[in-house]
Amino acid sequence: MMRNDIRIRAIIWLHFLRLWRYKFSFLNNILTTILWLTIFVLGALMFIPSSKWGEMAPIALWGIIMWQFLSSSVWYIGGWTWFFISQGLVEEHLLTNTSPVPVLVGRAITGLSVTLAASLLVALVFTGLAGASVLIVYNPLIVLVGLVLLATMTISYALLLSAASFRIGIPGTILDIANFISFVLGGLAVPIANLPEQIRPIALAIPYAHPAEIVRYGVRGLEPYLGLANELIISTIFALALALSARIVFKRTMKYIRKHGVKAVGRM
């Protein structure tokens, strides 16, 4: 138990140190994220009459923040796996009886740092566009609960991708497509109630839609599609199921690589 504590401390220390050492990349990533988001958001805003910008801005902003949780988990955890494998670091960690999983999960530190910084800056842009602060929320605790549930899901999903990339090459585009689908159809961008009737069952089947409903309730007080209590239960079940799946799949992957060796196949 004691040893696991030291391991976790080591992993956290490693990722903060790397974050500092790659500071230019870090700043570049924040800037790149903000710019891409602004391009798409400006495009989307062209569909809305200026009089409605104030009303839509917080929903759009929080949708984007939630999407950032998803895409940064995918890219900072899943995408980094190739580097981790190709540099022989999987073997080096296994030799110290350390599973690659916590090291990969630790990349969430980098991903969340970029997400946080980029979100704050995008919030400033939105505040300018909407003419009022978009970061004032209705219930911060509920927002936090929703984001924790979402982060659990996205990190688990990223780990599933990471596990897959030990065995197969995963093209980055496929991940982007999945992310975009989750954004629009998965209820991250808009409340499920605002989606066309036919698409709602799809959104309900996508796990992220549920914490997104919780977050929106916390931000604007919008009643979640299935009610707050139900959404909390469903989100918890989805989060646990995804985390458990990631654990099982990674265990199997570790067995697989012991049988077949570690090969850097999963470039994303």
């Binding site: 989307a44 805003l45 062209m46 569909f47 009459p49 409605k52 839509m56 585009t173 975009f180 629009v184």
Partner: peptide, 14 residues
């Protein structure tokens, strides 16, 4: 994919 994203977002919002 990009067209889908912009159109879907835009049409849901406006």
């Amino acid at each position: 994919l990009m067209t889908f994203l912009i159109l879907a977002l835009g049409m849901v919002y406006g």
